[in-house]
Design a protein around this nucleic acid. Sequence first.
DNA 1: CGCGGCTTTGATGTTCATCAAGTAAAGTGG
DNA 2: CCACTTTACTTGATGAACATCAAAGCCGCG
Lengths: 228, 228
Amino acid sequence: MDPSCSCELCELKELFVDKLTGDHLDIVCSGKVEKDFRQGEIIIKEGTNIREFTYLKSGLVKLFRSDNTGKEQIISIAKPMDYVSLLSVFSDKQYNYSVTALEDSVTCSLNLEDIKSIINENGTLALNLLSKMSRVTDKLILDSLDIRVKHLRGRVAYLLIYFSEDVYSSLEFDLPLTRKEMAEYVGMTTENVIRTLSEFRKDGILKIYGKTIHIANMESLQSIAEFG
Amino acid sequence: MDPSCSCELCELKELFVDKLTGDHLDIVCSGKVEKDFRQGEIIIKEGTNIREFTYLKSGLVKLFRSDNTGKEQIISIAKPMDYVSLLSVFSDKQYNYSVTALEDSVTCSLNLEDIKSIINENGTLALNLLSKMSRVTDKLILDSLDIRVKHLRGRVAYLLIYFSEDVYSSLEFDLPLTRKEMAEYVGMTTENVIRTLSEFRKDGILKIYGKTIHIANMESLQSIAEFG
DNA sequence: CGCGGCTTTGATGTTCATCAAGTAAAGTGG
DNA sequence: CCACTTTACTTGATGAACATCAAAGCCGCG
């Protein structure tokens, strides 16, 4: 293996690079493009052509789409190793959603045609991708179904637990979303996100300092997320 | 190609069988199991192990899951050529949803381990599956997002148009779902499904004879589905 | 028949969005 | 660094959308 290829150090290695050999590895390694994004910057814009296979190396991003009236709906929050361009990549010509950076982020892009032709010749890689993709979309679908049946309190609780456990691994963290974005994610209004947070604060479940959230009673929060 | 293999006649041929050769074809053809189901019968039960790759040859089925209180939520309606066991197959050990027949149906099942090992050696098939899977799950995700932002009238209109255009290709058809199931699909109550249907009838958009629906004004219905 | 499931309609109450108004925080230009 | 503007956040009041509860008609089936 080419020791000069910095993919050696990438966390995606085990999923991707380890399955490649010789020419394929060269194609991927030499064709890759790393990009830095500052918080708030647009990574992918709805309607543009899909030419690359992009994934997130570090940071945090949101996937969202705009409806006919211009209102935004957040589809998903993705952290490193959740592919960014997994949705649509193999089914569509154009992105039907946008991606922006919630925190400073680094992406790595590979030429999609290259990837496709490599998959064509490498079944193991393909099976890996199928499995990875299946996991990601399954979670997305189940989450979306979950959100639909929950009341507002349950939705907000759900979101806070997600950040606490899956993203920051801490009971105290800075919310990477505005109140408005939280609303766009779980399908409610900004006002009611705020009201629900205030209720949680009054009930002693949360301590809130602007964007900083401290979960004081995780058990209550979890039971609200489940049954609320 | 073995002329005795009835897969020759299957509609799935172009997606699947055409990509296979020699031994692989034999494995798939000889290992396949066709099953008949009567309306209402259970095809797949939530929680059982995934051992087969199952798809629908004819009929109509519903995918649904049961929440902790026993209430059912319909995830999707699938017609022939929409894979039945696409969700979860490559990511999970067990089904996290059930499938039952809405109309008399015929399925064909292949051994999942066989399929996986074939994919492992056949990148073209894998790429096809990736693409097919991507289309199916993308649609599921976008539909779920759509439903979340629509009002009740919009959701019911949406469902009626789906049956009229995608399933029965006719302005008049028999609803394969009970009112209760319609409610479970679009996330509302049975009473409000009925009320909404009655409103559409009073507005001259529908004619309703029990389970038989005649769409009298498709344009109105479409505009309700889009903006309601 | 009569029982049980599906359907329908009406009355009532709750949840949530909308509207309005005000405070705090964060940029922006002089 | 301070006035100024803009954007985010917060709270209360009101009304609309929707769920829940209750009751009755319909229809197939034993």
